[in-house]
Design a protein around this nucleic acid. Structure first.
Lengths: 141, 141
DNA sequence: ATTGGTGCAAATCCTTTGCAATAGC
DNA sequence: GCTATTGCAAAGGATTTGCACCAAT
């Protein structure tokens, strides 16, 4: 499940550590959007004593390697997403729930708009805020 | 320059305080994307002693009233924008510069995608990351 | 006169840093 | 054995809280 990470690390001359393998596996098994703290808790069984700084450092590395996406949806902490293909996100203003949004950005239009400004874009993140299906139903407040 | 705020506050039965007027005026005079801390400094002349919590509370209020937009572009702190008409943003990975991006989201497509999920959207923010014109030119690193 | 707003200081929260100890290679 | 990684504790920085005072209505 983490063979790709192993070969990338080898290719880059970086070390294959259990922390790196376990964190990526946890991310992939979870499948959704996870906080660093949730990763910490979820790997406690496999690797007791893994430190918070290590989790952050590893997540940063995975992002750099293109194996993970770091999401900032404005909830005050970062979310990590093992799904790296193009998709967007919704965030519920009431309950904070974050879901995938299958929506295609108009890449051509975006490229045109950014190049007009001399900007060299390498990523685009769309966050749609509002009320999730559950909270729309809910009594209110 | 802040008559709209005065009438909204009256209509809502809220108080018209110098802090509220000065902060909105500062935001509008600046025109760009400002941090809470920059607001604090910029109003020091008009209203010495204005506290940080007041600035945050006022900015929150202005956002709620629809007179300001709060931006989270992933730089670790919020930016406030007096421009509230639909537009998006670019953020430079190297120098952190944030600029307006004139790009029209496909509202219809977005509505379709979010409604399919039962989500009631009320705002959409697109942040494009990359290198700004200056940093593209720059020697590198 | 009421009570919503403000200022102050301290707390909170996520994330990063410094440094010694450890473990990949 | 060499040095990248790790763990620990502590620092950092943006934002929020609690509470007494003040000022807008």
């Amino acid at each position: 499940m983490t063979e790709d990470l192993v070969s990338i690390l080898h290719a880059r001359g970086q070390r294959v550590t259990p922390q790196r393998l376990v964190i990526l596996r946890s991310l992939r098994e979870h499948g959704g959007h996870v906080t660093a703290e949730e990763i910490c808790r979820s790997i406690r069984d496999d690797l007791p004593g893994t430190s918070v700084p290590t989790v952050y450092a590893t997540l940063d590395l995975l992002v750099e390697l293109g194996l993970t996406r770091k999401l900032d949806v404005g909830v005050g902490y970062a979310l990590y997403d093992a799904r790296t293909d193009p998709h967007q996100h919704t965030v519920c203003r009431r309950c904070g729930r974050v879901d995938d949004l299958e929506y295609k950005l108009d890449r051509e239009g975006l490229t045109r708009a950014t190049e007009a400004a001399g900007f060299r874009a390498d990523a685009a993140e769309l966050v749609v805020a509002g009320l999730c299906a559950d909270c729309v139903q809910a009594p209110s407040q």
